[in-house]
Simulated assay, not measured.
Amino acid sequence: MTKKEMVLRMAADNNGIILTKQLTEVGIYRSVLKDLEDEGKLTKVQHGVYVTKDGYADDFFLLQHRFPSGIYSHETALYLLGYSDRTPIRITMTFPQGTSSKRVKDEDIRPILISKNLDVGKTALYRNGNEIIVYEIERTLVDLIKPRYEADMEQLIPALKRYARNKNDINKLFEYAKLFGVEQKMHDYMGVLL
């Protein structure tokens, strides 16, 4: 099997997407990507990301690739998890404290910077066959009711109602609420809905 065939096979096994870092890991030079691009077998969609004619890399996957330390959160997570039908006007991602927010803001992402508990509730979600990192619904609901965040109530209240109806893990929800200091506020919201 030639290097080009290996790259195309790797892309086919990854929903038509190949990343330059994947090639580096297996010792294939990036020049192979350029050759395949010149032959019309791959298209560069952004730095380090190529797709085949049959491949598809959505905007959420591409943003995650550009900002790998970011986790989709807040209203964006509600949408990705199916708890809101409203496509986010502005993407919200949570980053570790110290991340330079200028580059993030230049991409029209609303950055939330936190110093601890970044990985609490972090999970992988698959969209169009591509993995993205998002907070699970319990963490998302807790983040939305934190005092420093002004949540869109038109999205929060229906999401809380849907969560209550779906018989999700209420214990986990309250564990997270306690961890983030919003236990009473969560009791107030959920007390009305349960």
Rank of each mutant, 00 (worst) to 15 (best):
K21P: 09
Y50G: 01
D106V: 08
Y29A: 15
R110F: 11
E131T: 15
V134M: 10
I137A: 04
F95L: 06
G82Q: 05
I28C: 03
P68I: 11
I145F: 01
K44L: 12
L81I: 09
S100H: 04
E37R: 13
Y72D: 11
Q97S: 11
T43H: 14
Y79E: 10
F61A: 07
T140K: 07
Q22T: 10
L125F: 15
L113G: 02
E75R: 09
Y149H: 10
V120P: 03
V120T: 12
E107A: 15
S115C: 02
L42W: 04
G48L: 04
N130F: 00
Y72R: 12
V142A: 04
F61N: 09
R90C: 06
A57P: 07
M93K: 08
A77G: 06
D119R: 11
L141V: 08
S101A: 13
K122S: 08
L125K: 12
Y56Q: 11
E39A: 14
E136P: 01
I89S: 14
F60L: 11
M93W: 00
Y79T: 09
G48E: 02
V120I: 13
I137F: 06
Y135D: 03
V45E: 09
F61W: 12
L62V: 08
L63N: 10
P111E: 00
N15S: 11
E75I: 09
V104G: 02
I145K: 03
L36K: 05
N128T: 07
G55V: 02
Q64W: 03
